[in-house]
């Protein structure tokens, strides 16, 4: 059987250092380092860069959304402040006694009858009341309509308007519609 002769690495020494052996160690070192870079370091760097990019993108997005939230929140607060009268008017329950007191300045109320409550434009409810009253002149009624805009509820004066002459007064029959929010804003806020 033929024997394979492995050539013996020659030993070249300079100042006692084995040049060939050290060169082989160095070459092997380079190979190992390249292998580690290719298999461990590069994927780690790639993953790191990817997650870092995602992190900064998300952070940037959060900053934008935070600014937007702040802006919307401020706008909402200023809107609420600016329209507090309207918002309160649509949330307050209608009180017949209070209304009679208010209307007393313009007419003598004989009766107020609640008629029906209907949905209005999805978000609101309108409750109608039939009012019988006595006025001295139609001007009282005009003044009442003008003053109703400052009343604590949102009131719409509505048909029919019946003016019937009495001895000293005019008997007036008319309807009012009181508008309220279907789901009150406060309830919404609490839910949030």
């Amino acid at each position: 059987m033929p024997t394979i002769k492995i050539p013996k690495i020659p030993r070249i020494k300079i100042y006692g250092i084995d040049v060939i052996k050290n060169f082989l160690f160095f070459a092997f070192y380079i190979l190992i380092i390249l292998f580690i870079i290719a298999t461990i370091v590069t994927p780690s760097v790639k993953l790191f860069k990817k997650t870092q990019k995602e992190y900064f993108l998300a952070k940037n997005q959060l900053q934008l959304v935070q600014n937007q939230y702040k802006e919307v929140s401020q706008t909402l607060q200023s809107l609420k402040k600016k329209n507090s009268k309207i918002l309160n008017a649509l949330q307050k329950e209608f009180n017949i006694k209070d209304f009679t007191l208010f209307a007393k300045n313009y007419m003598k109320i004989d009766s107020i009858k609640k008629e029906k409550t209907t949905n209005y434009k999805d978000k609101f409810i309108a409750t109608s009341y039939l009012i019988s009253a006595r006025i001295k002149s139609p001007k009282n009624f005009y003044d009442f309509i003008d003053a109703s805009k400052d009343y604590k509820n949102l009131i719409r004066v509505y048909f029919p308007f019946n003016f019937i002459k009495n001895k000293n007064d005019i008997n007036l029959t008319f309807k009012i519609e009181v508008y309220n929010l279907k789901n009150k804003l406060n309830a919404d806020e609490k839910a949030h």
Partner: peptide, 10 residues
């Protein structure tokens, strides 16, 4: 906000 605008419009 939309609800406030709706109320204002009404």
């Amino acid at each position: 906000k939309e609800l406030i605008f709706l109320q204002k419009t009404l």
